[in-house]
Amino acid sequence: MAYALQQLINGVTLGMIYGLIAVGYTMVYGIIGMINFAHGDVFMIGSFLSLIALLGLSALGITSVPLALALTLLFAAAIAALYGWTVERIAYRPLRGSFRLAPLISAIGMSIVLQNFAQVSQGARSKPMTGLIPGGFGLTIEGFTVQLSYVQISIVATTLSMLALFTWLVTRTSLGRSMRACEQDLKMAGLLGIDTDRTISLTFVIGAALAAVAGLMFLLYYGVIDFYIGFIAGVKAFTAAVLGGIGSLPGAVLGGLAIGLIETFWSAYFSTQYKDVAAFSILIIVLIFMPTGILGRADVEKV
């Protein structure tokens, strides 16, 4: 019981991170109908940026952890947003309205570029970064101590506030309205005077910023990153987006939580080696039996 509670806590934390990345996938897919293959790698870049920022701030003598974290979050999100914007501008915008496979291949190309860029510029070795927020609550039930670390609390709190901010952005601002209009019908939105290029760019920017936040959370949670984390996390986050119903923002978070929980419980009760298989199998099963996901819309083919 206590063990399960522990897994629940761990699963929710992990799920929050996946959810943040999944939002980026789901937004881009909703608007331009493509899998932004490079999104997982933007997340990876985001966690590298966070690492560099944290090291830089401590070198500058900023010792207050909350201040350092806040600055890091802003910095990583801003630079990652630049990455997101650039990726879209270089690899996707010229191919808008082109043959379907072309943007997919150029997205894969971008993913390879980002991965190897990080490897070449920062080295292939994994980067440890531990003990920034030590401690937590412990609760002993039936002889088993359930840990709720401060890291986990801050991850959940940050993610929730980010999502709240983002939901406000999408539902209450004119930018959000443009985004939703583009999602409904890109061509029509353009005809009605919405600057679709700008809206799409901003979608990538926001998605990348959220991915960078997820990158920071990942760094805090696992305490080690390398240039390859983007691929697996990206596939899992995409699974989350699909599971939740692609195009649906609450669905992405819900899907993220589901994947996080499944992965954690699977590792805890079955085997750690096959935890990725679990996530991928779920992806396959969901797509086959429930292609619209939990909160997605049905897509009926007209003949």
Binding site: I90, A91, L95, I105, S106, F117
Partner: peptide, 12 residues
């Protein structure tokens, strides 16, 4: 890295 760049460039 160059392989990835080439992919993007050729596709564009």
């Amino acid at each position: 890295l160059l392989f990835g760049i080439a992919l993007v460039v050729v596709m564009v």
